[in-house]
Design a protein around this nucleic acid. Structure first.
Length: 426
RNA sequence: GGAGGAGUGGCAGAGCGGUUGAAUGCACUGGUCUUGAAAACCAGCAUAGGCGAGAGUCUAUCGGGGGUUCGAAUCCCUCCUCCUCCGCCA
């Protein structure tokens, strides 16, 4: 969430940001609401503090009087403090409520989009930041989609997944399982080379962690919830990995913090069915390698570019046609200031598939995470956080299979042949 | 899962109802001394929030939450975590 003081000092900028996100009319009133609640919070605290200060002072006097044996005088003062108790309780309750309302209101305000975020309403308005050009692969008439190829080469089995768990839980087997394992290792090795520390985090997280990275309360329905122990299955490694730095005050010298991790990701994807989700296009459980950076505020857009280059390098090594989109105001994630999506062309489905999303959250996430650092001036301030997929597996596998199908089998790109242990899947 | 013990500042560790936001040591930062370093000495060293132009001052925080009390790090309840023993187990 945004900091109240930032909103107060940059109200026009925040309002303009909301407009980029297509907030109109009454929806913009949220900003004034936040400021009003904050004013109320302050005045309530001033009242409360002055009573508490007076009470504390008297209590100390009582201590002194008891030592001197002046019981009666002490009793008088006791009664005096006691008489304020109701008022204190009342103000404390008011404080609790105002704070809760303020937090709720702040949670309703999305991040301020970066000036480069194009206007627009839907994914159709996303701006192509980097195009592939016209020579998209044409596999001809007989090209098979990945779900057919998976069956043909016995790489994965959706029916068995349904039997064991349910729809959207694919079962990888044989060469399909090896392909997936090889890709994960390839991605992790590349991240390692780029200076990211590798993590193997818990796959279930507690409420505090889910709240800190913003999955709660906004995306409650999208996560699997182990209610008995009140733990959530992670929808992305971003959650456990970013939480490494929760409530930490870093030293400026620690920057940049670069973390990576491979995890399965669990998403309920409630309400999405149909063609768009066929095969591996959208599943409840998938593998992903995530990269996270925590950096000095002045360096975050450099870091974003670096992450962009990293993801681009992966796709080039995989020899897949890709394009990069700048998400428009309407499609931009609630917590993000600037997001680039990577899409890979699926030759048989004849459509672009999103395989990575790289975002700069600036201080929006770190404010809730309380990731701060001390700069040269000894002041603590919020760090910037960024993350991106590098990469998500299922759609990469879909594109690899579809784009590389030949009569002899599926020819793997050079970069991963040693990882998978074969040149061709036949 | 059962029984017992413990959680205090970056770390170690006092305090166990009254001016204690918290002794002391270490670490860290600045200074004195020194050609330089070490040692020694002096000073500083938590976070968040309110009020204030500022100096500053007030409030909250001793694992989390709640309670008792004029007053809680200290007493009570509850949750969490760690340690020891027993049981179970990949």
């Amino acid at each position: 969430m945004l900091q109240v003081n930032f909103i107060r000092d940059n109200k026009e900028q925040v309002l303009a940001g909301l407009q980029t996100r297509n907030y109109k009319g009454e929806q913009l009133a949220i900003v004034d609401k936040v400021l009003a609640l904050d004013d109320q919070r302050k005045s309530t605290q001033t009242k409360l503090d002055s009573i508490l200060a007076a009470n504390n002072k008297i209590s100390k006097e009582i201590g002194g009087l008891y030592k001197q044996g002046k019981r009666e005088e002490a009793e008088v003062l006791k009664a005096q403090v006691e008489s304020q108790k109701g008022k204190v309780k009342e103000l404390e309750e008011e404080m609790r409520q105002v704070k809760a309302q303020l937090t709720d209101a702040l949670l309703d305000i999305p991040n301020v989009p970066h000036p480069n975020v194009p206007p627009g309403n839907t994914d159709e308005d996303n701006e192509v930041f980097q195009d592939w050009g016209n020579d998209l692969p044409d596999m001809g008439e007989g090209a098979q989609p990945h779900w057919e190829l998976g069956k043909k080469y016995n790489l994965f089995d959706f029916e068995l997944g349904v039997k064991i768990a349910g729809a959207g839980f694919p079962l990888f087997r044989g060469k399909g399982a090896r392909l997936q394992r090889g890709l994960i290792n390839f991605f992790l090795d590349e991240a390692h080379k780029a200076g990211y520390e590798e993590f193997m985090p818990p796959l279930l997280v507690n409420e505090d962690s889910a709240r800190a990275t913003g999955q709660l309360p906004d995306k409650e329905g999208q996560m699997y919830h182990a209610t008995k122990d009140n733990l959530y299955l992670i929808p992305t490694a971003e959650v456990p990995v970013t939480n490494v730095c929760r409530d930490v005050i870093l030293n400026e010298k620690d920057f940049p913090i670069k973390m990576t991790g491979h995890t399965p990701c669990f998403r309920r994807e409630a309400g999405s069915y149909g063609k768009e989700v066929k095969g591996l296009n959208r599943v409840h459980q998938f593998e992903k390698v995530e990269i996270v950076q925590i950096v000095h505020p002045e360096k975050s857009y450099e870091a974003l570019q670096e992450m962009l280059n990293h993801v681009e390098g992966l796709l080039q090594q995989l020899e897949l046609p890709y394009r990069i989109l700048t998400l428009c105001g309407g499609d931009l994630g609630f917590t993000s200031a600037l997001t680039y999506d990577f899409e890979v062309y699926s030759a048989a489905q004849k459509r672009w598939l999103e395989v990575s999303s790289v975002s700069n959250f600036e201080t929006y996430q770190s404010n809730r995470l309380k990731v701060r650092f001390k700069g040269g001036d000894k002041k603590t301030q919020l760090a910037h956080t960024l993350n991106g997929s590098a990469l998500a597996l299922p759609r990469i596998i879909a594109a690899l299979l579809e784009n590389n199908q030949t009569a002899e089998g599926i020819r793997l790109p050079k970069a991963i042949q040693s990882y998978v242990g074969m040149e061709i899947i036949s």
